[in-house]
Design a protein around this nucleic acid. Sequence first.
DNA 1: CAGCTGACAGATTTCAATATCTGTCATTCC
DNA 2: GGAATGACAGATATTGAAATCTGTCAGCTG
Lengths: 196, 196
Amino acid sequence: MAATSPPPTLTAERILEATEEVLRRHGPAKATVVDVARALGVSHGTVYRHFRTKAALREAVTKRWLDRTSAALSGIVAEDRAAEDRLRAWLAALFEAKRRKAGDDPELFATYMVLVDENGPAVAGHIADLTGQLTRIIADGTASGTFTVSDPAAAARVVFQATGRFHDPGYAREWERPEADGDFASLVDLLVRGLR
Amino acid sequence: MAATSPPPTLTAERILEATEEVLRRHGPAKATVVDVARALGVSHGTVYRHFRTKAALREAVTKRWLDRTSAALSGIVAEDRAAEDRLRAWLAALFEAKRRKAGDDPELFATYMVLVDENGPAVAGHIADLTGQLTRIIADGTASGTFTVSDPAAAARVVFQATGRFHDPGYAREWERPEADGDFASLVDLLVRGLR
DNA sequence: CAGCTGACAGATTTCAATATCTGTCATTCC
DNA sequence: GGAATGACAGATATTGAAATCTGTCAGCTG
């Protein structure tokens, strides 16, 4: 498993890439720091020079992975459309992104679920990030009179929690069921009605 | 651990009581059919005369346990109050009942969670039961004009799913956090507004 | 004879010995 | 001298043998 090009310098980024690859191949339970080092052609001591612990490495990989989702969604927040449309699009995109990740990268997704279980800061940060995006949409809607909400941040929290079934990894199994899309649409309708 | 009174006849009910006791004491992982038989002073073959498999026994215990919650809630459905009040009271009672069970009987609760994981019919039945109760309240509210809902059953499904964070055992850890009650109240407000 | 028993086969769990991994650090290498 | 190494101690995971459990059933018992 030699690298395709001679390794220039060992950066944190290169380690994260290799770790993601190892995780994808072996899954979270069987992916060791030694494996990552071997994939990079270095000793495992070197990896510890960049990440203090295995947990920190796992967390960094997950953060990178989660940030890709956040970035995609933040595009929707910035779009020039009615707040209600953005809210619907944003929630749909979140559901779709999670569903796709669970299906495409089951091993990485399992790693993410381990982190959720451990209450890792990366997950807390991700949730804070997403809730922040939601807050912005809802605040916009409140400003324009579409929504009637006294505390947009609290409303965002509630909307995020209420839609948990469609983005919380614990429910991943349900996402493939045929009723999922219909249930999701009904839920979003109910929540939007409640915000108006 | 001799029985307090001489065993009259071995009924399914007596087995369920003993099983619940064993589960409470040993937890779901370490509670064996042999233990249950020993607690009853019979051979384990006898237990198998009443329950075909260990899974069936576990399921029956859980069902009995869940039915106690359902029965308590069905009282609220039948009360003579406005639908909105009943909806709020019902959801609050559900949250409170689950929270109490998780705190008081952690071992039995763990058994319940195993069942949820296995997608046992007892759990599906319990959910169907609860959703049915919700449907009745929402249908009442629709009839009286408080709620505006085209399909009360679908609305009940959505309300149940949206409040999952406050009754799904997977979230049990969150129920003790101080924000839980506030979040719950906000969520119920939002949902009630959406139903009107 | 209806209900219960206990021995049994196969599946699962436990346990302890062994191997591997994590995280540190004195030393080596460019 | 800054980056990487690899030997090491303690923690964790793997493994395979022994013990226990599940589910069956021929026979005992009242």
